[in-house]
Lab assay of single mutants.
Amino acid sequence: MGFKLLSKLLVYLTASIMAIASPLAFSVDSSGEYPTVSEIPVGEVRLYQIADGVWSHIATQSFDGAVYPSNGLIVRDGDELLLIDTAWGAKNTAALLAEIEKQIGLPVTRAVSTHFHDDRVGGVDVLRAAGVATYASPSTRRLAEVEGNEIPTHSLEGLSSSGDAVRFGPVELFYPGAAHSTDNLIVYVPSASVLYGGCAIYELSRTSAGNVADADLAEWPTSIERIQQHYPEAQFVIPGHGLPGGLDLLKHTTNVVKAHTNRSVVE
């Protein structure tokens, strides 16, 4: 069995187990497998329904001669939608809004960016022009300005110390501490036991640490421990890039980060 097929099978099995364990909360999309990078042309966006009122959005972007996937989250909030992270750029984010209108038909009224990198804030200006209120932590807003990236308009308070959590509509926002970046936030959907790890969490097929220019490698494993301790009931975990899975993604990420750190020390 090929690795790609095995990865998709694991996603399907995880979703099936969740649907059985929580039949009222989960209505997993039966329309197909989780979209992969090879299936999404740059400039297009796919939506994948995880649970009743919960979707991931998947886009792709060219970077350094390669094409990478990027995940975000959409959560229903009454007759409105909360968006977590842009679709990595203005063109993708405009396509995301169009796809949401086509498939869901509810307005996106608020959006949260989970850290300051372009795959999370690139497209904020498109959201703002569409009347979406954009939010991020003060740290993310400051770092985005320093980096020359787009800056969300509103500040999220109460997320300055490791372990801080605040309720934001249908989700809980959690600051686990520094990891992929010093400002990275985690998003949890309690009604569906869905954990969105953003770039602080890796997919299972990833074996290298990737972009760690703004990471705190020493603190990252401790931050992941905080996530595990705060959300032990999480059933569906979405990484910032690639295929979702279960809580095993947290341990896998820790292993990859520690291996990278150990290699760096040896070198």
Score class of each variant (00 low, 15 high):
Val237Asn: 01
Glu147His: 15
Ser16Gln: 14
Thr140Cys: 05
Arg167Cys: 06
Asp118Val: 05
Pro23Asn: 10
Leu83Asp: 02
Ala90Gly: 12
Arg142Asn: 14
Ser191His: 15
Gly131Gln: 09
Ser70Thr: 05
Val37Ile: 14
Tyr34Phe: 15
Asp214Trp: 05
Gly197Ile: 01
Arg110Ile: 13
Ala95Phe: 15
Pro138Phe: 07
Glu203Ala: 06
Tyr188Thr: 00
Ser162Gly: 14
Ser22His: 08
Tyr202Lys: 07
Ile104Glu: 00
Glu219Met: 09
Asp64Arg: 07
Val212Tyr: 06
Gly122Val: 07
Pro138His: 07
Arg46Phe: 08
Val67Ala: 15
Ala234Pro: 07
Ser181Glu: 01
Ser208Leu: 12
Asn255Glu: 13
Tyr135Cys: 05
Ser38Gly: 10
Leu195Trp: 00
Ala95Leu: 15
Ala94Thr: 15
Thr207Glu: 15
Pro190Thr: 10
Thr261Phe: 09
Val42Arg: 08
Met18Lys: 10
Val126Phe: 10
Gly72Leu: 00
Gln61Cys: 04
Trp88Ile: 00
Glu267Ile: 06
Phe63Asp: 15
Leu217Gly: 04
Ala215Phe: 05
Arg110His: 09
Gly32Ser: 09
Ile238Phe: 05
Val266Arg: 12
Gln61Asn: 06
Leu156Arg: 03
Thr93Met: 01
Asn184Glu: 00
Glu172Ala: 04
His260Arg: 10
His252Tyr: 06
Ser137Pro: 06
Glu233Ser: 11
Ala90Tyr: 08
Ser27Gly: 12
Arg76Asp: 05
Val171Gln: 02
Val189Cys: 03
Pro170Val: 11
Ala209Arg: 10
Pro35Trp: 14
Leu13His: 14
Val124Met: 09
Ala87Trp: 01
Leu5Gln: 12
Asn255Phe: 10
Arg263Leu: 14
Ala218Pro: 10
Gly72Tyr: 04
Tyr34Met: 15
Asp214Tyr: 05
Leu185Phe: 05
Ile104Gly: 00
Ser30Asn: 14
Leu6Ala: 13
Ser264Pro: 10
Leu13Val: 14
Ser139Val: 13
Gln103Pro: 06
Leu82Met: 09
Met18Trp: 09
Tyr196Pro: 02
Pro138Glu: 08
Glu99Cys: 06
Thr153Glu: 13
Pro239Ala: 04
Glu147Val: 12
Lys258Arg: 12
Glu267Tyr: 14
Ala200Cys: 04
Glu157Trp: 13
Glu267Ser: 05
Ala129Phe: 09
Pro232Asn: 09
Ser30Trp: 07
Gly240Lys: 04
Ser30Phe: 08
Ile104Leu: 08
Phe26Leu: 15
Gln228Trp: 10
Ile20Asp: 15
Phe174Pro: 02
His180Val: 00
Gly65Thr: 08
Thr153Ile: 14
Glu101Ile: 07
Leu173Cys: 02
Tyr202Asn: 15
Val265His: 09
Ala133Trp: 09
Gly148His: 11
Phe63His: 07
Ser30Gln: 11
Pro152Ile: 03
Ala234Tyr: 04
Ile151Arg: 07
Arg167Gly: 11
Pro138Gly: 08
Glu157Ser: 11
Leu250Tyr: 06
Asp216Ser: 09
Arg263Val: 13
Ile50Thr: 06
Phe3Cys: 06
Ser70Phe: 04
Gly158Ala: 09
Ala25Met: 12
Ala98Phe: 13
Val266Ile: 10
Val257Gln: 02
Ile227Ser: 04
Asn255Thr: 10
Asn71Ala: 07
Glu203Leu: 01
Ser181Tyr: 05
Ile74Asn: 04
Asp85Pro: 00
